[in-house]
């Protein structure tokens, strides 16, 4: 096996994380399942949100899982990429909006 921190085959073992703390682990998976269930948002919409968030938190397991889930639920590659741009724009925007702070500070420092 390759000596890497991330191994795609580990995704299959996700459910086993309950083993050392069964009670709270079970609560996590119950909550996880409930969060993705059909609600006021459809399960399909939730999959695309998860895909976008997966890129923001840069979780390779989540990216694998929700890329597949998004395809399975009928999203096109174009829709998936648009969702990623929204996520990335928020991420970029979060940096850029701090530019206001920079500008405020710079103005204060200028004589």
């Amino acid at each position: 096996m390759d000596n890497t921190y991330y191994n795609s085959a580990d995704l299959r073992k996700f459910g086993k994380v309950t083993e050392w703390s069964e009670k709270v682990g079970k609560k996590f998976f119950d909550w996880y399942g409930e969060a993705f269930a059909e609600g006021e948002l459809s399960a399909k919409e939730k999959a695309l949100i998860a895909l976008a968030v997966a890129h923001v938190v840069q979780c390779p397991y989540c990216i694998d899982a929700y890329t597949e889930e998004s395809i399975k639920k009928g999203y096109s590659e174009g829709q998936m990429m648009e969702a990623l741009h929204v996520a990335a724009a928020i991420r970029g925007g979060a940096s850029m909006v701090h530019g206001v702070q920079m500008m405020n500070k710079a103005k204060k420092l200028n004589m």
């Binding site: 399960a43 597949e68 395809i71 399975k72 639920k73 009928g74």
Partner: peptide
Amino acid sequence: NPVGPFLPDDQAALESQ
């Protein structure tokens, strides 16, 4: 039929789409 290595999604949801 799924166009890839995954299981089909919910039949009723796909039918409606």
